[in-house]
Amino acid sequence: MRLDYPPNVKIVRVPCTGKVDLLHILKAFEQGMDGVYVAGCLEGECHFLRGNLRAKKRVGHVKRILAALGINPERIQMYNLSAAMGGRFVEIAREMTGKVRALGPSPIKTGKGREFVEGQGEEKKQ
C-alpha cells in the first residue's frame, strides 16, 4: 500500500498485546515519550483469546497511574485493528500524533509539574 505514517511513531513489536506489561508502558514514559498507544487485534479476534482484553485492562491501569501523578491519561491509548487494516493503522498513527501534539510535551520530560488534576479534567496549560 506504501502508506506514510508520521515518523515520530516508534514501533515496539510484541507477539501479542497480551504480552505488553505495565512496566513497558511506564518505561516508555520514563524515557521521554510524550504519548504511548497499544495497537491490538480487534476485540474477539485475539489468537490467544484474551490477550488484547488483558492489554486493555493494563492500559486502563496506566491511565489511573498517570492521572494520579498529574499526567494527562490521554497520553496512553488502546486501539484495536486487524493486521489487514493498513489504512486504519495510518489513520490511528496520525490521530494519536495529533492528540499528543495538542497536549504538548510530557511534564515527565519538561519537569514542569502537574498538567492534570483528577476529577477536574485538564489543568490550564502554562
Binding site: L22, L23, L26, K27, F29, E30, I65, L66, L69, G70, I71, P107, I108, K109, T110, G111, K112, G113, R114
Partner: peptide, 14 residues
C-alpha cells in the same frame, strides 16, 4: 512498577 511511577513523579517535578 512503583519504582517507575516514583521516577515519573520526580521527573515531572524536575
Amino acid at each position: 512498577i512503583l519504582a517507575s511511577a516514583i521516577t515519573l513523579a520526580r521527573k515531572r517535578d524536575g
